[in-house]
Amino acid sequence: MTQAPAQVAAPVRANFDTNRSLVKYIFIGIITLGIYTIWVTARGGEDLNSIAGRYDNKRSMNYWLLALLIGPITLGIAALVWWHKTSDRIGNEQARRGLPKTISAADFWLWSVLGSLIIVGPFIFIHKWLTSMNALCADYNERG
């Protein structure tokens, strides 16, 4: 009696967004009075939880909850912690997948916080964050 070969499960593939851009983030954010920027950031956090959560056993707080409730209560400190942690998680997941590590918590503090002194720093950070999420999501869409 011959046995059928064992089925090997294909890697889980998803269809995460890979078209985040700074131009859309700014212009549509202005048109929607900031709602689009919160939505894109929240979606990035959810995607990060789906991609990296099973490997690092961490979960980022829902950004809607943070932006509308927790952030104002903590006078913005919770938002600083959220950006620090997600930036670091993205970089760590990129390194784990063998991708170039394009963002870290240091990028957040240097570009977004300290870079606000030169006005364009936060925009550079958001661009790095969005393109890093695009790269991470594209890799996950392809390899699972």
Rank of each mutant, 00 (worst) to 15 (best):
K128N: 09
S60W: 08
D56L: 04
I73R: 00
A138W: 02
A78I: 00
I28L: 14
I77P: 01
E46V: 09
M61Y: 09
I70E: 03
Y55E: 11
W64A: 10
P122E: 04
G91Y: 02
V81A: 04
W82Y: 08
I26S: 02
F125C: 00
G44V: 06
L33K: 04
I51T: 00
S112V: 12
E46K: 12
A105H: 01
I118V: 15
T74W: 02
V113C: 02
R97P: 09
W111T: 09
Y55R: 08
M133N: 10
I126R: 03
L136M: 11
S112Y: 15
G121Y: 01
I126W: 03
Y55T: 13
T74P: 00
I30M: 15
T32Y: 09
L69P: 04
G91R: 02
G98E: 05
W39Q: 10
K24M: 04
I28W: 07
L69S: 08
A78N: 00
V81G: 01
I26A: 06
A79M: 14
L68S: 10
I28C: 05
W82K: 04
G98N: 04
N92H: 10
A95I: 03
P100N: 05
L33D: 00
G71S: 14
A106W: 14
L66I: 08
L136S: 12
S60L: 13
S50A: 13
L130H: 07
H84F: 11
L68Q: 11
T41D: 14
D56T: 05
L117P: 07
P72L: 05
K85H: 10
N57F: 15
I124V: 15
P122L: 11
